[in-house]
Computed example of a mutant assay.
Amino acid sequence: DNLDRYLLGRQFMVVLIVFVVNQCGSPLAGSELWGLPPVLTNIFLVTGLAMVLFTCVIGQLNSQVNGCHCMLDYSNNFLALGTLYVAMAIEFSGLLHASYLIQMLVAYIAGKPVESQEEPRNTMQNIFFWGRCLMSLGILGFAFAVTLTAVVQGKTTMWAGVPPAASIVIFFVLMSLVGMLEGMQIAFFAVIKLTKAERGDSFFAKKTCEVLFRGEGRNLPAFMVGRQICVVTIMFVVARITSLKIVPGEGNNLFGVSDTIQNLFNTGLLGALITTIVGSIAWQLVASIFPIAFLSNPLTYILLRYCLLLEWTGLCHGAWFLAEIHSRVAGFQRDEVYVGK
């Protein structure tokens, strides 16, 4: 069960880091760079494309390339251990426990019990667990209230010219898309273990599996690369929509909160919380229980094709080169060296 706890905390860390990077790297209005033409400045700087590619290639994909083949060496350091402890601490805090309520609801609908490798909770453990679930649910509701109010009032970092109503629609559409991409990853790995007969009779389920497992199966890692570009791009846009830009001390604090609380709102923490629970973990839980239903969705096939197209463009192929440098400098060896083939 600690693996599930780690994944829960880790997902929040990933989303929060993207939100923080957005805060750090968002250009000021009218910014110019190296005398580049306005067209290039708008494409790479204003839209955030440069930041997306930088985050994908350096911050994520090169690590995933090494991590998937050299798991033992990659995790054999204090940074990996520290990351584990931080993720576990985040989960223990109860901040994300609303996810467990979603898990229980989905399992109930599916008629499947929630499996655990641990002993049943005693009375005190149940009180502690359900207390954190209620706390998390309350915080999630408050996060939605703050975020949507700020969007309606035009007090977020969303690009100028986008009306509040459009921002709200874009927000929920993007949350659904990132949820689909998160769920697809889970569903694809789930169906790897299934035979063709077990993958259902749906037209789109068959087409999706046909594309995904074609040839030597290269399309699965290719999808992961394209998916990562999509997810990071969407998260940067969601961060734009949900991050507040209210200057504390000017009497404009949301709901009349103190300057300290307003500064906390401005960090994008609440948007990261919403994205983690509603736009990521919830969809993963659904996909883990209903993988075939996910494959049968026409949007899954469309997104798969789009992710493969993104990978084919080579936008993030530099990650392979950086991964090779990192691997040689760190002396990584493939797992087969230690455990055999």
Rank of each mutant, 00 (worst) to 15 (best):
K196W: 15
E182D: 13
A166Q: 01
I186H: 09
S176A: 15
S167P: 04
P164F: 04
E182G: 15
S176K: 12
L177F: 14
V178C: 12
L181D: 01
P164S: 04
F188I: 06
E182F: 13
F172M: 02
A166S: 08
M184K: 08
A190D: 14
S167F: 00
L181G: 01
S176P: 07
S167K: 00
L181K: 03
V178H: 14
F172N: 01
P164Q: 04
T195V: 03
E182V: 12
I192W: 13
F172E: 07
M180G: 01
V169H: 02
S167C: 01
I170K: 05
V191Q: 03
L194Y: 14
K196V: 06
F172Y: 01
P163M: 01
L181S: 00
V178E: 13
G179W: 01
T195N: 14
V178A: 14
A166M: 02
A160C: 14
F172Q: 01
F188C: 03
K196L: 12
L181P: 00
V162D: 06
A166T: 14
A165E: 08
G161R: 03
S176T: 10
M180T: 01
G183S: 06
A160S: 15
V191R: 00
F189N: 11
V173S: 05
A166Y: 07
V162E: 12
G179T: 05
I170D: 12
M175V: 05
I192D: 14
L174F: 07
I192V: 10
P164D: 04
G161N: 11
I192Y: 13
L174M: 04
V173T: 09
V173K: 09
A165G: 10
V173N: 07
I186R: 09
M180A: 09
A160G: 15
L194F: 14
A187N: 08
S176Y: 12
Q185P: 02
F188A: 03
K193P: 00
V169S: 04
A166L: 06
Q185C: 03
G179S: 02
F171W: 00
A187S: 09
V162R: 12
G179L: 00
I192F: 14
Q185H: 08
V162I: 13
Q185K: 09
I170Y: 12
V178M: 11
L194S: 13
L181N: 01
E182A: 15
L177K: 08
L174V: 06
P164G: 03
L194G: 11
A160F: 15
I192C: 13
A187K: 05
G161S: 06
V162S: 12
V173W: 10
S167V: 04
E182T: 12
V178Q: 15
V169L: 02
P164E: 01
A165K: 08
L181C: 02
F188T: 05
